[in-house]
């Protein structure tokens, strides 16, 4: 009787039924530019920021922190301007998250100086006694591995040349290792002496955090 006695037909029909909703709501939108618009004001991550983003992913920060501010009054009040689709054009993968054990980070860039982040990453509890965030001081003990940085940006299509990547890395290193660096004292405090003149994983993840939401903020100040 009917398809329940024809396993192959049944399987094909199941696949077809499953694919209808998938096609309409997922596959077709992939080819619609309006799903993920691109805007000139949003800049791709620099190599250092991208390395920081990879560390953010490696440590699973997305399991506790979201990166989408919803268009709700109290949410905008707490975090800042709500998230716009074009901000995520260079995000592969997206890191919107699904759970807020910690606060949203989509507008964290520029909110605090680097020194705040060095201290906070080293020991969240030293700043907020009751915080349940794990300490990440050990990131400052790891030298940043930049051996794949160029390959990463080229896979992501950021359009940097190999030289661009080298320049970005050495510029950022010069910035955080300079005597004039505003957060030098805190950085030296959390970073082992032998890495004072190198880039660490801590430097990179802070560079990434400082990038989050910056393009939107820059646009607002320009207006």
């Amino acid at each position: 009787m009917g398809i329940t006695s024809k396993p192959v037909v049944f399987a094909v029909l199941s696949a077809a039924v499953i694919l209808i909703g998938s096609t309409v709501t997922v596959f077709i939108p992939l080819f619609m530019p309006s799903t993920q618009p691109v805007s000139a004001y949003v800049k791709p991550y620099t190599s250092v920021e991208l390395e920081g983003r990879d560390i953010y992913m490696r440590e699973g920060c997305n399991n506790c922190h979201t990166q989408t501010v919803r268009p709700l009054r109290t949410e905008v009040l707490r975090y800042g301007e709500y998230s716009k689709p074009e901000e995520f054009a260079y995000d592969r993968p997206f890191l919107w998250g699904s759970r807020r054990t910690g606060p949203d980070l989509n507008r964290i860039g520029g909110k605090y100086p680097d020194s705040w982040h060095y201290r906070h990453m080293q020991s969240p509890q030293s700043m907020f006694e009751k915080s349940n965030m794990p300490p990440y001081g050990w990131l400052a003990k790891n030298r940043l591995d930049t051996s794949n940085s160029y390959k990463k940006t080229s896979i992501l299509g950021y359009g940097f040349s190999e030289q661009d990547v080298q320049v970005q890395i050495s510029q950022y290193r010069s910035k955080v290792t300079a005597d004039t660096y505003l957060s030098k004292e805190t950085r030296d405090l959390v970073t082992p002496a032998e890495l004072h003149h190198e880039l660490t994983e801590m430097d990179a993840i802070i560079a990434y955090l400082q990038k989050l939401g910056r393009d939107v903020k820059n646009l607002e100040t320009k207006k």
């Binding site: 992939l30 799903t35 993920q36 995520f88 054009a89 260079y90 995000d91 592969r92 997206f94």
Partner: peptide, 10 residues
């Protein structure tokens, strides 16, 4: 996939 598309696929 990038951004909103990645979110949608995911």
């Amino acid at each position: 996939y990038a951004g909103a598309n990645d979110a949608n696929v995911e």
